[in-house]
Design a protein around this nucleic acid. Structure first.
Lengths: 189, 189
DNA sequence: CGCCGAGTTGAACTGAATCAAGAAACGTGG
DNA sequence: CCACGTTTCTTGATTCAGTTCAACTCGGCG
């Protein structure tokens, strides 16, 4: 079975016709480590599904790169603000590993919404889940010390330390690399 | 025209039949200042529209109340996590002023999704807007000093200082009341 | 072999928290 | 409508977590 269809079953089951129409419109693309899925200034016209690999969204602030999210296997990926508004993206999306994604254009997905109520429902449900995740992350972040943020993260995503450079994790947590390095040292002992 | 229908036109226009079916299911409720729309531990079974007034969502942390969002006129309101998952809410929702809300139950809204594709589309579009807002708030919050958070807030919502106690604003910004008081003093001079 | 990016370590500094005490504003009942 | 108690806000002194800046280590790779 198609890996995207397989994953969508976790949210809402589609009937076979809708599944087929969707599958036909999904294009597989492979990328190498350090490739960009999207560069700042371009409009994000696609909705992606990351089958294998890892990536990050980051923007520049005072000459430093701020990674504000990571994507791993089975995550839906897009530069949301740009995708929805059609405006140029402020963020870059870059691969951290050799990766495989499935892509569908906004135009095609919108057409599928018109043709299949249930596909729009599926996306509505996916939005709900992603909204809750974002909200949770937000509430968890505030009022925590750097050390708490770190331990929370390795509980939630223990693999992240092996797969992502320290500097990217530290900006994701909103602390400096030096502080994260010290915390990690404490933690290991 | 019904105030909810009026506001929905900003997102996606409904046909008259859908408008009527929706309007019939909306119940108007008035509350007084300090009333609770939802108390911690209860399941949020409704989706609300705040026609007039103001409210806040808050939770307890170390014996202190942390206000993590505000709602004003024309905002959609619910305890999202509880509403979606059906689990007891961690947060309270309390009115800051005498208010008027329109309510629809989750059951009825779900039935409307089944009956009218376009109502589900409307909600999908509303989710997109609210997701972007949350994302924006998140990115803006990190890496800002307390003073920057304050000036950003009064630009975005200048009315908030008149309508909301300082202690609630400070926890919303993730700083102490003392710090906000000092910043505000600096700012005024 | 030497360079380069990633990570570590140290010392000084600073923004904001904490703790504590007053002042002002509010609303509630007599 | 005033008096009293409670909540909200302000101000000061001290402390501390985390930043900044700078130097150093380590491992990989051309």
């Amino acid at each position: 079975m198609h890996p995207v269809i397989q994953h969508l079953k976790n949210y809402y089951p589609l009937n076979p016709t809708a599944e087929n129409m969707l599958t036909e419109r999904l294009a597989s693309i492979t990328f190498s480590k350090n490739d960009f899925l999207l560069k700042k200034g371009r409009v994000c016209q696609h909705f992606y599904f990351l089958e294998k690999g890892a990536l990050r969204g980051f923007y520049e602030l005072d000459g430093k790169e701020i990674t504000h999210w990571f994507g791993f296997e089975n995550n839906f990926i897009t530069s949301f603000h740009s995708y929805i508004t059609g405006q140029p993206s402020i963020e870059n999306i870059q691969f951290l590993e050799d990766s495989t994604v499935w892509a569908i254009s906004k135009k095609e997905l919108t057409e599928l919404f018109d043709a299949f109520h249930e596909i729009e429902r599926l996306v509505r449900i996916i939005y709900e889940q992603y909204y809750m995740q974002l909200e949770e992350r937000y509430v968890n972040a505030q009022f925590k010390t750097a050390a708490e943020l770190y331990t929370d993260l390795i509980h939630r995503a223990p693999h992240i330390l092996q797969r992502v450079p320290l500097g990217q994790i530290s900006s994701y947590l909103g602390i400096t690399q030096e502080t994260l390095s010290r915390i990690r040292k404490q933690h290991a002992q």
